[in-house]
Design a protein around this nucleic acid. Structure first.
Lengths: 143, 143
DNA sequence: AAAAAAATATGACTTAAATCATATTTAAGA
DNA sequence: TCTTAAATATGATTTAAGTCATATTTTTTT
């Protein structure tokens, strides 16, 4: 469904949503451990997200990563798309070029509606909404 | 969702469901072309499926691959599981070990129901059912 | 200003998935 | 029985994803 990298990114961003703020930035090494993601790999991912303004970062002493208020408003799908590209989540499950509603591949009707529903959920759910869930114990964010 | 290999396998098996029979076996090279899958890679996949009795094959001149009546009764999910393993389709989307209904990960409720519905569809749909769809023009099986 | 602590940038290495190639076995047909 | 045509088995190569390492830049603190 989505790549390993996207999973890592989601875990990282949610951890930041729950634990960081502009006043309390988090360094790579303190982020990599609790979410169980290889440190250097995570650094690359976050640098990428930083360039795309999906996470915030400050260099130097007292620096680190955090989510701004604006960052927190982003939807889950934006993180996924930033990492995996816009196409991956939309592509035909059999990777058939010509597959669409008028010309459906054989698996299309077995999957399409549900897939759209998932997409819709990912499209409407913001990071701070998920962070609230985690804080209130409705969901978890472990390794 | 599922691997490239599983996509290839599904395309191949559906092609066989539509075009082959015990009286009309299909050689690897005549199968690889229309479904646009690398020939040698496809051979490996089919040999694997053959060992697991999901496709039928005969060696030697006049040999080739085909689907027996029994093969045609198999469900789509069986092909997928044979190629990707039983776990892949069931695993937590964030690959969290501890994720389950009692202890849901953050994306769990965004996806779970729809995912189950897809699984259910793949579990109840047989190859010959899909083949009928293709034959009657309700769906396509191109590259 | 200098030193130290952080992200950033770049690239090398490793692993697994995907692809390709070749030798072996089996069955059909002459 | 010999030749040929197919799958089968095995393994090598390539490519892409994932991982690791190091040098550079920026910012804070002294």
């Amino acid at each position: 469904m989505f790549s390993n990298s996207a999973k890592y990114a989601i875990k990282a961003v949610l951890y930041l949503a729950v634990n960081s703020s502009e006043e309390h930035k988090i360094m790579i090494k303190d982020l990599a451990k609790p979410i169980n993601v290889p440190r250097h790999y995570l650094a690359k991912l976050l640098q990428d997200l930083s360039k795309k303004h999906l996470v915030s970062s400050i260099k130097g002493p007292k620096g680190g990563f955090y989510l701004s208020a604006k960052n927190r408003k982003e939807k889950v799908i934006d993180i996924i798309n930033a990492v995996d590209g816009e196409e991956r989540m939309k592509a035909c499950l059999l990777s058939l070029e010509g597959c669409n509603a008028n010309n459906p591949c054989s698996l299309h009707h077995l999957i399409y509606d549900e897939r759209q529903a998932i997409l819709k959920n990912l499209n409407k759910t913001s990071l701070d909404h998920l962070a609230e869930h985690i804080k209130s114990g409705k969901s978890i964010l472990p390794l």
